[in-house]
Amino acid sequence: MASIDFLPKRINDPPVVFRGMTMREVMLMAGTGFLSFLVVGIPVAIVFGMPALAPSIAVLGMACALGAGGTIMRRLRRGRPASLLYRQISWKLASRGISMGGERLITRSSVYRIGRERRPQGGLR
């Protein structure tokens, strides 16, 4: 019976879905674009008296966010592991005191000493 002698490096990486983004990143960009442009579209729809204008602007904004977001994410992750960007974001939030998902990161750096002290030369204990 044959067995695999090695594990491929990227076996557990999520597949690239759209413009170099994973499905999680596509949903993040689409949701952010939709909500931010919905906030812009509601006052425009009220001014022009056309309620269908708000979701139309939101969908247009979602498409723009996906296009621009793919380019930005590809540049941020070029040549780095897929999880590095998320770890950097969680570290920046943790250094500001915001904890995500109950995980605690070490944010304080200091110099540590080994507990051994130097003995005088030739002396007994």
Rank of each mutant, 00 (worst) to 15 (best):
M1P: 08
I4P: 00
I4M: 11
I4G: 02
I4L: 13
F6K: 10
P8R: 09
K9L: 09
R10T: 14
I11F: 04
P14Q: 07
R19T: 00
R19F: 11
R24Q: 12
R24E: 12
R24C: 00
E25F: 05
M27F: 14
M27H: 08
L28R: 00
G31M: 11
L35E: 11
S36D: 03
S36T: 15
F37G: 01
F37V: 01
V39C: 02
G41V: 05
G41C: 02
I42F: 01
M50R: 12
P51A: 13
A52I: 13
L53Y: 02
S56K: 05
I57A: 02
I57E: 01
I57Y: 02
L66H: 01
L66I: 06
G67H: 12
G69Q: 03
G70H: 06
T71A: 12
T71E: 09
T71Q: 09
I72N: 07
I72H: 08
R74N: 11
R75Y: 07
R75C: 09
L76I: 15
R78V: 00
S83P: 06
L84I: 07
Y86T: 14
Q88T: 12
Q88Y: 09
W91H: 13
W91L: 15
A94S: 09
S95V: 08
I98F: 13
M100H: 12
G101C: 04
G102N: 07
G102Q: 04
R104K: 14
R104Y: 07
R104L: 14
L105Q: 05
I106R: 06
S110I: 10
Y112W: 11
Y112L: 13
R113P: 00
G115W: 05
R116Y: 11
E117S: 13
R119M: 03
Q121C: 00
G123C: 02
